[in-house]
Design a binder for these strands. Structure first.
Length: 291
DNA sequence: CGCCAGGCAAAAG
DNA sequence: CTTTTGCATGGC
């Protein structure tokens, strides 16, 4: 067990205390480039959303592996354990990196605490179509504009926020193409409109694909307009938990060429290639001056 | 002004 | 089949 439930707290919105035994760093996860709607509050509380589930989570001062969370035990076990990938032992995975791969060892030490989030497939499809040739702050801005225009508004004790809209919520909005065109999507607008229709009219079954092998999964997404090799890999990794896949983007390309002499280092990390990829992506993001 | 950002489809070779 | 080109927008 990589986490332990502790006592219920009485009469507060953060109602449960938990201990997390494995690698877990909220700030690094939020900055890891896989999620675009995590919010950090001034007091160090982080907010995550998936579907219509909202979690507020805060590290306990002085006790680095204890966290206050806003959900009950059932929701933690049913939703967030899977979301944060707590069935996987990241500490063990890091220890599997051989001494011969010094760059990977450094990247993993730097990115220690990152986890591969199991996010909503529909949200990942739209988010990573938007991501192509866009800076991360601009990706976040576009996604937020979509949520504001089509998503359900939720008021919590902390804030008011919009959920990521379902395909139905977008497709059933009269003249939804025009509202989407306000979201700074640029040339990706036509890809997003097609993706809404593809999912709404069930030309692709995002739930059903969970039972398919990764190759079939990739091919299904690459068949969509605006989804190529890289975006398909991101969806498979960040929505379907396919950790054997390592998306190759411009940053990873630079590392493969500059550090690994053109040889992809991820393929030898059979079942954890995607985790290694995230360590290196995070390492590159936080050491931009070295490129 | 130029250059690039978690790439891709379409055109050209 | 492989390589090149155009693409919206914003930040630096």
């Amino acid at each position: 067990m990589l986490f332990a439930l502790m006592h219920q707290m009485d009469g507060r919105q953060l109602e449960m205390l938990i201990r997390i035994e494995d690698d877990f760093d909220l700030k690094k996860i939020a900055d890891s480039g896989q999620c675009f709607r995590v919010r950090e509050f001034d007091d160090g509380t982080f907010r995550f959303v998936t579907g219509d589930n909202i979690l507020y989570i805060k590290s306990q001062p002085g006790k680095s592996n204890e966290y206050e969370v806003s959900c009950d035990e059932e929701t933690w076990i049913g939703i967030w354990t899977s979301y944060f990938d707590f069935e996987r032992d990241y500490s063990l995975i890091r220890s599997s990196i051989p001494n011969s791969d010094n760059y990977m060892l450094n990247a993993a030490e730097c990115g220690k605490g990152i986890r591969i989030l199991k996010q909503d497939p529909w949200e990942m499809l739209i988010s990573f179509i938007i991501s192509q040739r866009k800076a991360i702050p601009a990706i976040k801005a576009s996604i937020e504009m979509i949520c504001e225009r089509f998503g359900k508004e939720i008021k919590t004790e902390y804030e008011s926020l919009y959920l990521f809209p379902t395909p139905e919520e977008i497709a059933k909005t009269p003249d939804f193409e025009n509202l989407l065109s306000e979201c700074k999507l640029g040339y990706r607008l036509k890809y997003i409109i097609e993706a809404v229709k593809n999912v709404y009219y069930k030309e692709i079954d995002l739930e059903g694909l969970k039972k398919n092998d990764s190759m079939t999964l990739l091919e299904a997404f690459k068949g969509l307009y605006g989804v190529g090799e890289k975006v398909a890999n991101c969806i498979a990794l960040f929505a379907y938990g396919r950790c054997e896949l390592a998306p190759v983007d411009t940053w990873i390309k630079k590392v493969i060429e500059g550090i690994y002499d053109g040889v992809n280092p991820f393929t030898k990390y059979t079942d954890s290639a995607g985790i290694m990829q995230q360590y290196i992506f995070y390492y590159a993001q936080t050491h931009k001056q070295e490129f």
